[in-house]
């Protein structure tokens, strides 16, 4: 009874679980292992699940499983010094970048046929920005749901999304300069 109810509630969200794990780890095999482990963990905790949104509940477990995995396998990942990586990018310069019409992402993507450009830019973002963008833009979660999944305050969700978008924008611009 429990197993069947669990499968009915969680298996419809398998793609969402896999997509998140895949974006967090960049690896198909690791994502599969993480999702499978997350489902087993979720099953153990299922008695405590009181029927809120099953997708958000499941993805919180997938996310934690993925982070545990990242910590064990890639020590450096947890705290990438993104300010160094994107060194010269500060609030002022990014604000001005937004104001230059030729540098907006639509224009960049229109000039560049390569569909992978955006994937590459998103993949280069530090994981804490990548995850909020994936949850927001690919899964359409609200700020509140993202804050529950990622275990951060709503204000942080908002600032990470803003910062993540600025970094993505800057990254697209740099890649574009490299291409032309």
């Amino acid at each position: 009874m429990k197993a069947r109810r669990f499968e009915e509630m969680t298996l419809p969200h398998l793609n969402a679980a896999y997509n998140l794990a895949r974006w967090l780890t960049h690896s198909d095999q690791d994502a599969q292992d993480i999702v499978q482990e997350a489902y087993l963990r979720a099953f153990k905790f299922f008695d405590g699940f009181r029927g809120e949104e099953a997708r958000a509940w499941l993805l919180a477990i997938v996310r934690n499983t993925a982070y545990t995995w990242l910590r064990q396998n890639r020590e450096s990942v947890s705290h990438v010094p993104f300010d160094e990586e994107f060194g010269d990018l500060n609030e002022v310069s990014s604000a001005t970048l937004f104001h230059q019409p030729d540098n907006n992402p639509a224009a960049i993507l229109a000039r560049n046929d390569d569909k992978r450009l955006l994937d590459q830019a998103l993949a280069q973002l530090p994981v804490e920005f990548r995850e909020v963008l994936v949850l927001r833009e690919l899964e359409n979660f609200s700020y509140k749901e993202i804050s529950e999944i990622a275990g951060i305050p709503i204000g942080t969700v908002m600032s990470r999304l803003a910062r993540g978008r600025r970094l993505l924008q800057a990254c697209l611009e740099r890649m574009n300069l490299g291409v032309t």
Binding site: L14, N15, Y18, N19, F98, A106, L118, D119, L138, R165
Partner: peptide, 23 residues
């Protein structure tokens, strides 16, 4: 123009970023 820029970036992510389907 900042608003337009952010809106188009959102649309670009939604349309272009890969949604990985589970095997």
């Amino acid at each position: 123009s900042a608003f337009v820029s952010q809106t188009t970036l959102r649309a670009a992510i939604k349309q272009r970023a890969t949604y990985f389907q589970a095997p």
